[in-house]
Design a protein around this nucleic acid. Structure first.
Lengths: 237, 237
DNA sequence: CGCTCGCTTGATCTCCTTCAAGGACAGTGG
DNA sequence: CCACTGTCCTTGAAGGAGATCAAGCGAGCG
């Protein structure tokens, strides 16, 4: 089941031959459950395993000097947020669940061995880490130069598109189990302003977000508000 | 000379054995010169080579809907901004010189072959792309949650630290051949505000930036203003 | 000499923050 | 069954950081 989830995730970015796929399917790890805000990996750690989300939601963040935090990314079930630990020695940020979440911990050794024997798997895992980088750039663009309502619309577009690619969405509806405070930390705006911006977006009729569920009523309109171009996600389907 | 520059760059992030180093030294490429704003690589391209900066300054950016652009990163001499093209098929942003710049174009084939024979080189090149990602996160944090003077101080701290690591700085002074408009595009603030923020920083006595030269008079004070922690650069020296 | 490019300054406006308080809802214990 | 508590959401009012608009300045250059 772990190999299956990983294979599903990797093949959203590229293709694998039968042998490669079989090798990924054979990958296994330890399943563990974490409660909200119980860090899975902390800044300064030198992890010897990678993480695969099985349900719930994970977020990558750093604490800020003012007591808040900056959220760098959100990870839905089947996402693998920490494949980069394969080639960095030390973590410079934290990984934590936004709600109670089950994760698989996959030892680096298992991944090294598979990549060693199957170069296509190495190539695809490397690519996955590069797509992460591409997403950081998109977040940088968004938070630097978009007004709050457009930035929030952009984040929602990304969440919908990714959950659709992962097979998690129900039409144009997906779970996004976060509080408004997490949205504030992701967008770099205040909690109060998140609340007001959500109301503005709701009034457009394009989207609504309530109690952890994102409903996109008009994807085209939302993409228009967000100036959303999904190329940066590098999805193959 | 190209292999030398690449070796110098890679070994700022980690170590290589004698054989690995010799292999990197043997890497060669085509030297070419580009004028300002003549894109070296464009969004949508499928490059078959990577880029190494030899002098001047390169910037990574995307155009914005409003006619401006978002700058994602700056690349000093010996930096290799496009190693990620080894494992992504299509570019989703642009690479362009900020001033007349000489670059080396290194064919992917040469790099693949070297990485194939020297796993430590592969590991270090992969790590370099992950350090890039770490820098995108730092820029995201900075532009999302720091006021303009702190964000600018942070950018200046990064430029100084990186040029020092590359052996380009003269004490606490380094070349940063950009206009105030490029700073605006990097920080996500208006050109007018860049100008005023520069004056504020100059008044603190910590730093001055004028006609493409960055002078840090008080590194500790500047780091204090910026809340700068260089860990994200993952420098080994 | 006039031109362009980059830098500088002033005035006005607005988006967003901050502070402060109130409300909805679930969980808990009497 | 109902007060009690904590978490999250919502609203109002005031203040500030930065955007925008508009104009002037200085240096390099044909």
């Amino acid at each position: 089941m772990i190999g299956e989830a990983l294979l599903h995730h990797l093949t959203t970015f590229g293709t694998l031959g039968p042998d490669d796929a079989a090798a990924v399917l054979a990958i296994d790890g330890e399943v563990r459950s974490y409660g909200r805000d119980c860090d899975i990996i902390r800044s300064g750690d030198r992890p010897t395993y990678s993480v695969l989300a099985l349900d719930g939601l994970l977020i990558r963040y750093s604490p800020r000097a003012d007591g808040g935090r900056q959220v760098y990314g959100m990870y839905f079930p089947t996402d693998a947020p920490c494949l980069e630990t394969l080639h960095t020695d030390i973590m410079d940020h934290n990984l934590t669940p936004a709600v109670e979440t089950r994760v698989a911990l996959i030892p680096h050794a298992v991944l090294y061995e598979t990549m060693d024997r199957f170069p296509r798997v190495l190539s695809l895992i490397w690519r996955q880490t590069l797509v992460q980088a591409s997403m950081f750039r998109a977040w940088l663009m968004r938070n630097s130069s978009q007004p709050a309502h457009a930035a929030m619309a952009h984040l929602f577009c990304e969440c919908l598109r990714r959950t659709q690619a992962a097979g998690l969405a129900r039409g144009n509806v997906c779970d996004l189990p976060v509080t408004q405070e997490v949205l504030a930390d992701a967008l770099g705006i205040s909690l109060v302003h998140v609340n007001r911006t959500l109301q503005i977006l709701r009034q457009t009729g394009a989207v609504s977000f309530r109690s952890g569920v994102l409903e996109v009523h008009d994807p085209a309109q939302l993409a228009g508000i967000a100036d959303f171009d999904p190329h940066y996600l590098h999805l193959h389907r």
